[in-house]
Nucleic acid binder design. Structure first.
Length: 301
RNA sequence: GGCGAGAUAGCUCAGUUGGUAGAGCAGCGGACUGAAAAUCCGCGUGUCGUCGGUUCGAUCCCGACUCUUGCCA
């Protein structure tokens, strides 16, 4: 399908969702969350999910599409989001923390979808024979970057693709051009620290405990959520609260760095450096100006 | 106060039988189309606590001092 959207990127804790909430409320638009963790039901505090009140005023897509017990993926997320976007009557805004999801939206996912059986097979080979066996099994026509060649995940995926040669590869698309919010690194680190402490103050521990009661077995992807895996360890008495906070802060900082690296090189961004003193309205105005300049992005999926 | 132990990268520590040093973590940079908050790749100059001594040469040996820590008082 073809549809236009306004994308706003940015690392975690840059306030992009607040900006889109404001703009969507004003224009009667909807917001697509391109975020791999907002998809989990009940994981609200630790993912800084828009509140119930906010979601009652604006339609969100890509939020609460799976339970923590279920595995999720870019494909599952994309499927869940399509319908809502197609039926949108107002402008479509996309807030992106997960680069892959933004790309899936603008370019589609054309590779064969994840196949648990194939994956399990190669995972076993990896466990028993090591990464060299995967490298050897790779068809000679498949090219990986040097770091991907050392990366079990990517190797596994490459083999998964090779097992189903039917799929045509993507038509290279020009990089999507959209504004991105950013803070000076030092300021961002301070914000992250503040936010993590706030999450605990808002009851991250209680929320996690409740979720564990509701879903005793979490999927591997849900278990990877920053904040939740540490809180689980805290609840199990394996680490102290101070250690949990420290660990969460560190992982969030590392995430933010990777997100900015992705945006710098995998997209064509206009960086909007914001200051903590800037009002939400002022930031929103700058974002709109950038959209006006570059035009909306075509969605193809 | 006495007897030990320690003081090396932002943190935890290794090491040099004397030729100015290296891991993990953190940090920084990078990769990136179905696990992506994942996964992987690259980057290590730091008064080797301070002052003096021995030596061609000391972070390493010797002495004093400062600080930390353990045991005994």
């Amino acid at each position: 399908m073809n549809r236009q959207a306004y994308i706003l990127g940015g690392a975690t804790a840059t306030g992009k969702t607040a900006v889109l909430q404001l703009l969507a409320e004003k224009s009667g638009g909807m917001v697509v969350s391109a975020d791999s963790m907002l998809v989990y039901k009940g994981m609200d505090i630790g993912t800084a999910k828009p509140t119930v009140a906010e979601r009652s005023r604006v339609t969100y897509a890509g939020v609460d599409v799976a339970t923590p017990a279920e595995p999720c993926s870019a494909g599952v997320w994309l499927e869940s989001v399509k319908q809502t976007i197609a039926s949108a009557s107002g402008p479509v805004y996309v807030t992106g923390g997960t680069g892959l999801y933004i790309k899936a939206l603008t370019e589609g996912l054309d590779a064969p979808k994840a196949d648990p059986a194939v994956r399990a097979h190669w995972q076993q080979v990896l466990d028993q024979q090591g990464i060299k066996a995967l490298q050897k099994a790779l068809p000679s026509n498949v090219r990986l970057t040097p770091s991907d060649y050392q990366n079990p995940r990517r190797l596994l995926r490459a083999l998964e693709k090779a097992a189903e040669p039917a799929a045509e590869s993507a038509v290279p698309q020009s990089l999507p051009r959209f504004p991105v919010l950013c803070f000076n690194r030092e300021v961002l680190h301070r914000r992250i620290h503040r936010r993590v402490r706030q999450m605990f103050a808002m009851g991250l521990e209680a929320e996690t405990k409740e979720l564990m009661k509701q879903y005793p077995q979490w999927s591997e992807t849900a278990l990877g959520a920053i904040g939740y895996s540490e809180t689980r360890e805290l609840l199990a008495g394996q680490i102290t609260r101070a250690e949990a906070v420290e660990r969460i802060v560190i992982r969030t900082r590392q995430l933010a760095k990777r997100q900015e690296t992705w945006l710098r090189h995998q997209a064509d961004c206009e960086w909007i450096e914001v200051d903590e003193r800037d009002s939400l309205e002022a930031v929103a105005a700058r974002v709109q100006k950038a959209w006006k300049k570059h035009g909306p992005v075509e969605l193809r999926f």
